[in-house]
Design a protein around this nucleic acid. Structure first.
Lengths: 191, 191
DNA sequence: GTTAATTCGTACTTTCGCGTACGAGTTCTA
DNA sequence: TAGAACTCGTACGCGAAAGTACGAATTAAC
């Protein structure tokens, strides 16, 4: 922040490193610092010049992923019928989750307990608000804690990502399957 | 199998080691061979006398956990109304899952891809049969692949275990919450 | 064009946990 | 009670990956 200001080539290096980290960690959560440096087309020493430790690098990577995710999700129109809004939100969310599932695992491993959750705060809040609005509309159930519902949605999204990774679910089908599953999990009882 | 037969003290050691492994790995999936030996009250060398590598030990631990789980679940009466049967099955399953969640993570890490899934085959099949019976009864939805539903149940069970571990869900509440969530996820549409 | 930031290779230290070697004592088993 | 099976400590070798040290060559910034 109050730094003497970075040179342009340094900015470029950092950007390449962060991008490479996202990419590499999304394929293998145990990717080595060396792997990442190589993928970024940069010497390991250069990398260490910008990120002192591996955790620091991992955090930068996931923070960047979440930031760009926010960009996508923040632009969505979530007004109107809550069920429809949920479908729209899931449709966009699930791709992001799927792409960065392994990166998330990497972060869980090296960042202190709760840190990842904090970084997810915006996304969680968005989902929570939508659910609460749906509850007021009578569309969503009210018999379970909202916090649990929000997290249950997360678990199913990650589950779907895992199914795809393992080849048990086709990417093309996933969106519909996930949406249908979550909608009925959240819907108010009708009987 | 065709071994010259083991001595009684060896049997005892093995039993203690496996028990300690289950216990230690259920607390920390990265538990060291040394940790486990110590917890078993046995020298590290003794452990290596029975399990050549760490993965071999982890596999023994999870196999044992699943075997004892089978004992519990195999004794359940799952006849009658599928919804009620599902509740009974979940009530028993979720505790088991919760207890061995970390052990499962350990196994995922070191065993070859798919191995864990194979070991789970019995449990998965039991759930699958129940779901299919419920579908024939008209109680459960038929618009999604059965395999996905089975796995989705798993993901939610593991999610609930994680919520408890993190202190966001009280153990006493979990059974009811999980059951309610899964029931509505599986129920046939009524509208 | 001078200065300071940046790159980046090589080589080193450290840490950690796995697995092995050796060998002496102990305890089952027949 | 003989001999084989088992226990278990100490010490070692090994590989992987993290992070450090040093210093020379580049390159942006003004």
């Amino acid at each position: 922040m109050t730094r003497p200001r970075r040179r342009a080539d340094a900015e470029r290096s950092i950007a390449r490193i962060v991008a490479a980290a996202r990419e590499a960690l999304s394929r293998d959560p145990d990717a080595t610092v060396d792997d990442i440096a190589r993928a970024a087309g940069v010497g390991r020493m250069t990398l260490y010049g910008h990120f002192r430790t591996r955790p620091e690098l991992v955090e930068a990577a996931i923070a960047d992923a979440l930031r760009s995710g926010e960009q996508t999700l923040g632009g969505l129109d979530l007004t109107g019928d809550a069920r429809d809004a949920l479908t729209r939100l899931l449709e966009s969310s699930w791709t992001l989750v799927s792409e960065s599932a392994a990166l998330l695992v990497a972060a869980q491993k090296v960042l202190p307990e709760g840190r990842v959750r904090d970084l997810h705060a915006d996304a969680a809040e968005r989902m929570e608000e939508l659910i609460e609005r749906g509850q007021r509309q009578g569309a969503f159930r009210t018999d379970l804690p909202t916090a649990w519902l929000v997290n249950a949605v997360q678990y199913l999204l990650h589950g779907a990502a895992e199914e795809i990774r393992a080849g048990r679910l086709k990417t093309a089908d996933a969106g519909g399957v996930v949406t249908a599953t979550i909608q009925s999990m959240l819907s108010a009882a009708k009987g």
